[in-house]
């Protein structure tokens, strides 16, 4: 037994792009975890009121942490594995304004 607290200091050895700037992440991080570790708390605005959204449930259920990944809207940041070179962008509303009738 030791009095040392349990902890980990993962080495953030890779980067993806978030709204055009690099965000570092360690092996095994999700996009959401990397953004959170980088201090980013919101990466989506709601469809009607434009309010900020980020991690809520963190386990892929609530669809609150949606983000645009490599041009695909509605990706759940909490379950998409971070990969070097991903182009991650803030999702405005449904992320599909181009489809509106």
């Amino acid at each position: 037994m030791t009095d040392e607290p349990i902890g980990a200091e993962p080495v953030a050895a890779h980067h993806f792009s978030f709204d055009g700037r690099p965000v570092a992440f360690a092996d095994g991080h999700s996009v959401g975890a990397a953004l959170w570790a980088d201090g980013v708390r919101s990466w989506r605005s709601t469809r009607h009121a434009g309010k900020p959204r980020g991690i809520f449930c963190g386990i892929g259920v609530c669809f609150d942490c949606l983000v645009v990944v490599d041009g695909r809207a509605d990706e759940r940041a909490c379950v998409v594995p971070a990969r070097p070179g991903l182009d991650v962008r803030t999702q405005e509303g449904s992320g599909r304004a181009d489809l509106a009738l």
Partner: peptide, 9 residues
């Protein structure tokens, strides 16, 4: 589906 703009009227 996820919420989308009005695609189907």
């Amino acid at each position: 589906t996820a919420p989308v703009p009005v695609l189907v009227r």
